[in-house]
Amino acid sequence: MFQSVIDSPRRHGVIDVRLRRTLWGVAGLASSIIAVVVAVVATEALPALRGVELPRFLNDPSWHPTNQRYNLAPMIAGTFLVAGGAVALGTLFGFLSAIFCCFYAPPRLAGLYRGVMELLAGIPSVILGLWGLTTLVPIVAAIKAPGFSVLSATLVLGLMIVPTIGLVAIASLQSVPRSLILGAEALGLPKWLTVVRIAFPAARSGLIASVVLGIGRALGETMAVMMVGGNIVQVPESLFAPVRTLAANIALEIPYAEGLHRSSLFVSGLFLTLVILVVLCIAEWLGPEPIHD
């Protein structure tokens, strides 16, 4: 069968050309859809960008868009606070899980644990939000009312990010050439040193990619955060204070928003998009090429 393919190089070439065209087309379509999305968000944001001076989005007295007050600053702070905490948690437990799976767990347990993580990754965020609302929030409320808080939001979001980061980290640690690990073992390095000094540097770009994915998910996640965060527009004074993120703000208010209110929600959407773009650029700059290439 292989023989016949090789025997007809012309046919082979035709398939290649067609495949190339199709792939170019698909790639072009995918990237142009992104361009259209950004363009639409920017167009919708334009009235607010024109009608409200930019600094007002940061220093208006409050967020009461129906009364022409457009301060997004508390929600920007809330977004970074919750996302930052969740990414820290997610990175810690994600990396630890990956190390456990790749280096310490017996193969069967590693497979099982990975399966559990895949399952966790597949749980819809609204379900995790519901769990947070009915279980986590009352527990936090028992420590300090009202329970809808930075802490609850961070924990739920962190839980969602653990598999995102963990699974990508596992894949990148597994792609570290076996020879490097065996070499380290042959030199008599203890396992933890092998992990920290050999495997991690070798898998660097994959690990960075995993964290970037986690950051992207943390910044954009809406439903679960909206259900447990409390959504009060304020710079939270403590871990137990309610918080509203930009994404939650958009989801909460867009269905009935009018005019400049609606447009200013698109401004916050545009801002989120830009932040994620910057994160991607930093990641690109941090992890250029895998070391083992």
Binding site: H64, N67, P146, E253, Y256
Partner: peptide
């Protein structure tokens, strides 16, 4: 959340300003 009709009705009926409401949770629908 701002813009919801139930909020509007509530505020008008009790003659409260939106900014005076001290809530612990804000929800959509």
């Amino acid at each position: 959340a701002e813009g919801r009709s139930t909020l509007e009705l509530f505020l008008t009926h009790f003659d409260i300003k939106s900014s005076d409401v001290k809530a612990a949770v804000v929800v959509g629908d």
